[in-house]
Write a protein that binds this DNA or RNA. Structure first.
Length: 327
DNA sequence: AAGGAGTTCAACCGCCAGTAT
DNA sequence: GATACTGGCGGTTGAACTCCT
């Protein structure tokens, strides 16, 4: 016996919703909650299928939906999340609906990325083989690194929190001192593709090579921090390649009495980029952050706990290969 | 001003996974 | 285990809108 349809399809209205229907749906949900969508239309006096009501509510009537033009930051976040999570970035942008982001991705971002020479699926530069100039070779190289780095960033975000807590526990035991919570790790550099995106956003890009030539590659790290060291052994390994990632032997870096994340302290800072950082871009779009504070992910104040938990959950739910932590 | 082409986006459809019975 | 139900997701459609000639 096959499945019955979600509702009787005969005699139900389809197509655009009238203001009167919206009113009925809103009034009913405000008073009773949506409950079972299947039974809602009859109870609310609507000649609509339950699924249609659910879509209308989730994509249009829900009071916490943000509408209107997408900001640069939102665009960047969509691109970043798309690279990390595939086709479901909207789950992580609570104020935009799935449908809106899907449409925006398909009609705006995908098109513009293609126009800019990026493959919207892989986020890599396309067609680099015809003209083997230095510039295009560099572009190819950077695009490949970008993909690898995206995965690493996700791991770092999760692991840095874990390892910092481990250091604190170890040090507190060894030295019988109270070790303050770590400073936020220096912001990781943003995506190269996003640098291009920002340029595209503010002015038309005529020559891609001029933009890329101005990059500090994500592999070129500035050395702006000096650290003292405390004995221990820490390292990260990438499970897929078994190559140590930024291996730091016999040292935990500290500055101003605070432990620094070894992943980031080895010059993993690119101060030349002006685009909002990976983390910073996320935070404006985190759930329920309106009116709390800006960029709290980047600071270890009280609000950070909420964000930390949020991102721990999000990153834990990702199907990214997990590097091995060796202590 | 008119109308054809292109774009946007709300809404729909079918499929699927998770859960309840 | 089979069936039914629910909600989510990706792809598609078509009306409304904008742009261009």
């Amino acid at each position: 016996m096959g499945r019955s349809p979600c509702c009787e399809k005969v005699g139900l209205k389809k197509g655009s919703w009238k203001a009167e229907e919206d009113q009925k749906l809103l009034a009913y949900i405000e008073e009773h909650g949506h409950g079972s969508w299947r039974t809602l239309p009859a109870k609310a006096g609507l000649q609509r299928c339950g699924k249609s009501c659910r879509l209308r509510w989730t994509n249009y009537l829900r009071p916490d939906i943000k509408r209107g033009k997408f900001s640069l930051q939102e665009e960047q976040t969509i691109i970043q999340l798309h690279a990390l999570l595939g086709n479901s970035p909207s789950t992580h942008l609570s104020k935009r609906t799935d449908n809106e982001i899907k449409n925006y991705w398909n009609t705006h971002i995908k098109k513009r990325l293609t126009k800019m020479g990026f493959d919207p699926v892989t986020h890599k530069l396309k067609s680099l083989c015809t003209n083997q100039s230095k510039e295009t070779a560099n572009l190819s190289h950077m695009a490949q690194w970008e993909s690898a780095r995206l995965q690493a960033e996700a791991r770092f975000t999760r692991e840095s929190e874990l390892v910092s807590n481990c250091y604190r526990s170890q040090l507190q035991l060894l030295h019988k001192v109270t070790v303050p919570p770590p400073l936020a790790p220096p912001r990781p550099p943003c995506l190269d593709v996003l640098k291009v995106w920002q340029g595209e956003w503010t002015k038309p890009v005529k020559d891609m090579s001029t933009i890329f030539n101005g990059f500090s590659s994500t592999l070129n790290f500035s050395s702006q921090n000096k650290f003292s060291t405390i004995p221990t052994t820490v390292g990260f390994f990438d499970n897929s390649s078994m190559v140590p990632i930024n291996y730091v032997e016999n040292s935990v870096h500290m500055t101003n009495g605070r432990i620094m994340d070894p992943i980031y302290n080895s010059n993993h800072i690119t101060d030349s980029l002006s685009v909002p950082s990976f983390v910073e871009s996320f935070t404006d779009l985190l759930p329920n952050m309106d009116g709390v504070t800006d960029n709290v992910v980047g600071s270890y104040d009280g609000s950070f706990e909420d964000n930390k938990n949020y991102w721990n959950n999000e990153l834990n739910s990702m199907a990214l290969p997990m590097g091995s932590l060796v202590l």
